[in-house]
Amino acid sequence: MTHAHPHTSHHGVPHGHQHGHGTDGQAEILDLDAEVLAEHTASITAWLPLETNPRQIVDLGCGTGAGTFALLDRFPDAHVTAVDASAEHLQRLRTTACARGVEERVSRVQANLDDAAWPDLGSPDLVWASASLHHMAHPARVLRAVHDLLTPGGLFAVVELAGFPRFLPESAPENRPGLEERCHAATDRRTAEHLPHRGADWGPMLTAAGFTIEGEHAIAVNIEGSHSAAIGRYALGGLQRIRGAVADTLAPEDLTALDQLLDTGSPHSILRRDDLTMRTERTVWAARRA
């Protein structure tokens, strides 16, 4: 979701301001995330402790639609209301829905969920929020609003990220081992100022909002680059955005090594490496309205 902190992406990577990676670059990363993690997202939807298949679903902070389309695939009789503050993301979602032939099963709503008054989102059986709650300025208020929105017995699925994925081995690049971790440490310091709830334990907050926790599920993701050509593009896009955000805080040697990785024409380009592995962690909470 991109509404409350305009300098932070859907995954907590600050926006780049030097290489032209604005909303389009962010949307591309969201699409790559959906492609690479499709099986993991499908496993989350299959894990949800649902009493009956939902017919009305709301995807809060839908981005370009990774969760929306996973939910449509999992529940073929359901209709999804996709909510985001970004008109560009919603338009991209619409284009994908049309390409998939599911446009009639998706409604798009542009809204800032930090506003006190929400648009009419119906009475969903399932609300899904993946990597979006930590963007809210007032998450406790949002959780209460979701509680009141759900039908009695309805389920709220919250997916939280440990941070942006890592791709390089610790020994890489050869001239500056550990570069990726240092870059992420620099972004984490800045991100913490704007997103204090990223990586939060949502369980106690959900309970405080009146939910009953039905399950908690931690997922460790480890996907070798040889399994998906998209992993190299994901790594490139993520590091490009990191460079744009924290170049001024990196050591000159780190910046030089980073630029070599980002130079797609260089023999040192990250796209030419055969040792990439996408590593990340996600936690899912399933919370029911009594």
Rank of each mutant, 00 (worst) to 15 (best):
Q110G: 11
D148H: 15
A230R: 06
H3Q: 14
A140H: 12
V83T: 09
G20Q: 09
I57N: 06
A82M: 05
L250D: 08
G232F: 00
F75G: 05
E39C: 04
H21N: 13
A145H: 14
V83G: 05
R279D: 06
I219S: 07
L195I: 00
H17A: 14
I270P: 05
S132I: 02
Q56H: 13
D263L: 09
D114W: 05
V109T: 06
V159C: 10
S226L: 09
A117K: 11
G61W: 00
I231S: 07
A87V: 07
E181T: 13
F69R: 00
R189Q: 10
L30E: 15
M205R: 15
R108E: 11
V80D: 04
Q240N: 15
G63E: 04
T283D: 10
A172C: 07
L250C: 08
V284W: 05
L121A: 01
A162W: 10
R289P: 01
S269C: 05
Y234D: 07
T64K: 08
L149K: 06
V159E: 13
L155S: 03
L250H: 04
P54S: 08
L276K: 10
H134M: 10
A251Q: 14
H5I: 03
Y234I: 02
T256A: 14
P196E: 05
T8H: 11
R241M: 15
R241Y: 00
A162H: 13
A117S: 13
E170T: 11
E193T: 11
A87R: 14
H217F: 09
L239P: 00
D31W: 00
A247F: 08
S130F: 05
A4Y: 01
D33K: 01
S132P: 04
L50G: 03
G238C: 09
D148N: 13
A87Y: 09
H11V: 12
E28G: 08
A70M: 05
D263E: 08
V58T: 14
L50N: 03
F167P: 03
L121C: 04
T23I: 15
L150E: 04
A82F: 02
P173D: 07
S132K: 00
I29Y: 08
R289K: 15
H19A: 12
A46I: 03
R198Y: 06
D263G: 10
F156R: 01
W202Q: 09
T249W: 06
A200F: 09
D31A: 15
P267N: 04
V221G: 05
R282M: 13
I57H: 00
A66G: 15
A251Y: 02
L48R: 04
E253S: 12
A4F: 02
I242D: 06
D254N: 10
S43L: 07
R233I: 05
G163Q: 05
A97H: 03
F167K: 03
L48E: 02
P124K: 08
E224G: 14
